[in-house]
Design a protein around this nucleic acid. Structure first.
Length: 683
DNA sequence: CCGCCTCGAGTTCT
DNA sequence: CTCGAGGCGG
């Protein structure tokens, strides 16, 4: 009978649907929580597709916790209100180590002992949520709200892939876990970039972005946002004995398949806690999510009960807050610099503001498109931060502080230095001053010529370079080699006595023996940096051979394409540039490759990236050492990187390497590796 | 033609 | 450190 066949098919489908759901749940856990997938993305997608097809055929098998429902249900009119069974408290803040130790003393006094354990957790800058599970299924997710009542965001939280919709094994019939929903920095950047392209208003920060995403009425919007979650506390539970300590509770939460932050540590003393806080103050930027402090909690739940709360703040926990690396200040105006290649570089002139220990007054703004994308206007109140704790950066305007008197920036039509009309090449982001005689360009070119990696002449900085040009003593780098005939004029310059003139002339003299690659680099040919200069020097062996080369001769070299070849060719066809070469030659500057450097060595085939500050040698010296022994030194971490060598205060490269699973060496490890391969270290 | 990998260029502050 | 752009393989 037909019905019998149908029933059998239905039973089979039902069984397969169940199986697929548990398979998918398992692999999602491997991928999103443990970060170690067992199957490829394509294989995973195939499982989801199969489930989707079965559900389409048998809609009655669809349940709200099915992984296919993660893309989001129907939009709602408004988010409902949820009453928290146990209020979500806020935390007292500690702004210094003293505050932290004072808190510890108060706790010790109240429980009458000082040998209690503490748990430290990075304080994620996101959105606090409470998740309620009944019979192993997620039934309610709510925002913190005012601590007593929050908004119902269950539909939206179901779209976050690392939140288990159903728990495995035997679990208490009802319990609540608490955590923080956040957006990764990389996800935020990508999202904002896409919003900019689509002409949508930008989010100010990953935190804002996460909050906005979670409070969407349409879960499909939430599903499209790169959200994730860390759980950090057991709210309440029924029908089972709760653990005795906070860290055991965390272990239990992790064992259920929730994501728990891997950087949580348990300590016995406040000294260790203080050290932990200090460490993270330094390396907070190495994570791909924002943290604004460290939460310190008393581990024992019995002590926690004994300590209780004052008002809305528990006495058993405190938030150690990092000094802010972001601040708001006024953007006074946008000025424009001219680079050595003629590029016009806009930068922000800010009302001075202290950020992370330094007073920031200037910040680069890259180009006109970037300013427009971020909608930054002159007169705006802006958020400023120090990327990697160093380089100041304008994040964006504070729209609520707009008065209407702000001015939209427009790139000047004429070069600010020489008044030549500027041009913007088709499809390029930068404006150029096309005038090769532009004084600003010549000045930057001279600075480049004497700089490190180029002719490396000590004693010429910004001010002396400017004076030499203003006095008419130097027009280009080659003129430096004729300064010895103008001793008297040199002595007439500011802050230049007999002794400094001698030193200056000596270092100019010494620079005549730089290798060919550095001379080529010093010329400042567009698209020719240190790397390309080195390739050209190796290939041609002398300036003369390079000067006489045709475009196709240069183009044929691996690593060199048409753009570079044309740029080199154009440089040497210009009379003024050939004259510079003549002057260098007449002065006795080395214009040929001294000797072919040994390329093979014990590090052949290995690629190193060096980041942070090393103790034993400068980064340049370390890179030179690697290259001298056949290795390659790259500037950014990719799949091809074999070793990341990490010094003090590393930046974002460390996170990238951890993400890719690159082997990470500290300085001692690096030195050990060199010794192992019998490489002598410089004195 | 697209996406990945490298390199080039400009930059801050102490 | 950042972004943009050149080179090149798929």
């Amino acid at each position: 009978m037909a019905t019998q066949t149908e029933t059998r098919e239905y039973e089979q489908a039902k069984a397969r649907v169940e199986e697929l759901r548990s398979l998918i749940a398992y692999h999602e856990h491997r991928y999103f929580v443990l970060d170690s997938p067992e199957i490829s993305d394509a294989e995973f997608d195939a499982l989801v597709q199969e489930l989707r097809a079965l559900e389409a055929k048998h809609p009655e098998l669809i349940t709200p916790d099915s992984p296919t429902q993660r893309v989001g249900g129907a939009p709602v009119e408004t988010l409902g209100i949820v009453e928290h069974r146990v209020p979500l408290l806020s935390l007292a803040n500690a702004f210094s180590e003293d505050d932290l130790r004072a808190w510890h003393r108060r706790v010790a006094a109240q429980i009458e002992r000082d040998d209690f354990a503490l748990v430290c957790e990075p304080k994620i800058d996101g959105l606090a949520v409470a998740l309620v599970y009944e019979d192993g299924r997620l039934t309610t997710a709510a925002t913190r709200g005012d601590g007593m009542r929050g908004e119902n965001i269950t539909q939206n939280v179901r779209t976050i892939r690392s939140v288990p919709a159903r728990l495995k094994g035997s679990v208490p019939p009802r319990f609540e876990v608490r955590g923080e929903i956040y957006m990764t920095k990389s996800g935020f950047e990508k999202l904002n970039y896409e919003r900019g392209e689509a002409g949508l208003p930008l989010f100010a920060s990953p935190r804002n972005s996460a909050a906005g995403s979670v409070r969407q009425l349409d879960p499909k919007v939430t599903a499209s946002r790169p959200l994730d979650i860390f759980l950090y506390q057991l709210g309440w539970m029924e029908g089972a004995e709760p653990p005795a300590t906070h860290h055991e509770a965390l272990e239990w939460i992790a064992s259920l398949g929730f994501r728990v932050n891997p950087n949580i540590r348990r300590f016995e003393t406040i000294d260790e806690v203080a050290r932990f806080c200090a460490e993270w103050t330094e390396k907070r930027d190495s994570l791909d999510y924002e943290i604004d402090g460290i939460v310190v909690k008393v581990d024992s739940l019995a002590y926690q009960r004994q300590l209780g709360a004052v008002g809305r703040e528990p006495r058993w926990a405190i938030a150690f807050k990092f000094p802010p690396t972001q601040a708001t200040t006024k953007l006074l105006r946008i000025d424009v610099n001219v680079g050595r290649t003629g590029t016009l570089n806009p930068f922000a002139v800010l009302e001075p503001v202290k950020i992370a220990g330094a007073t920031v007054q200037l910040a680069t703004l890259h180009n006109e498109d970037d300013i427009r994308r971020k909608d930054i206007r002159e007169g705006d109140t802006v958020i400023v931060q120090r990327a990697g704790d160093v380089i100041p950066q304008v994040v964006g305007p504070v729209l609520s502080k707009r008065t209407g008197g702000e001015k939209v920036f427009r790139m000047p039509r004429k070069c600010p230095a020489c008044k030549t009309p500027v041009a913007r090449a088709e499809g390029e982001a930068m404006y150029y001053c096309p005038n090769r005689q532009c004084p600003a360009q010549r000045f930057r070119l001279l600075e480049h010529f004497v700089g490190r990696g180029a002719m490396d002449i000590d004693g010429i900085g910004e001010s002396l370079a400017a004076q030499l040009m203003r006095a008419g003593l130097v027009q280009d780098g080659a003129d430096l080699y004729y300064l010895k005939d103008h001793r008297d004029e040199l002595l007439g310059l500011e802050r230049l006595g007999e002794k400094s003139v001698d030193n200056l002339l000596a270092s100019i003299e010494a620079s005549k023996r730089r290798p060919l690659a550095q001379v080529i680099f010093a010329l400042g040919i567009r698209h020719v940096g240190g790397e390309v200069a080195s390739i050209l020097a190796n290939h041609f062996g002398s300036i003369d051979a390079l000067m006489d080369a045709e475009t196709h001769d240069i183009d044929a070299i691996p690593g060199i394409g048409t753009k570079i070849a044309e740029s080199v060719r154009e440089f040497f066809t210009l009379e003024e540039n050939r004259r510079i070469i003549d002057k260098l030659r007449a002065a006795g500057v080395n214009l040929r490759e001294e000797s072919g450097g040994a390329r093979e060595g014990p590090l052949s085939g290995l690629t190193f990236v060096i980041t942070g500050r090393l103790e034993r040698f400068s980064r340049d010296a370390a890179e030179a050492l690697v290259k001298r022994h056949g290795g390659a030194a790259a500037s950014s971490v990719t799949k091809k990187t074999d070793y990341l060598v990490v010094g003090a205060e590393p930046g974002s490269k460390l996170a990238k390497a951890q993400q890719l699973g690159t082997t990470i060496l500290d300085e001692a490890g690096f030195i050990a590796l060199l010794r192992e391969r019998h490489i002598e270290l410089p004195a």
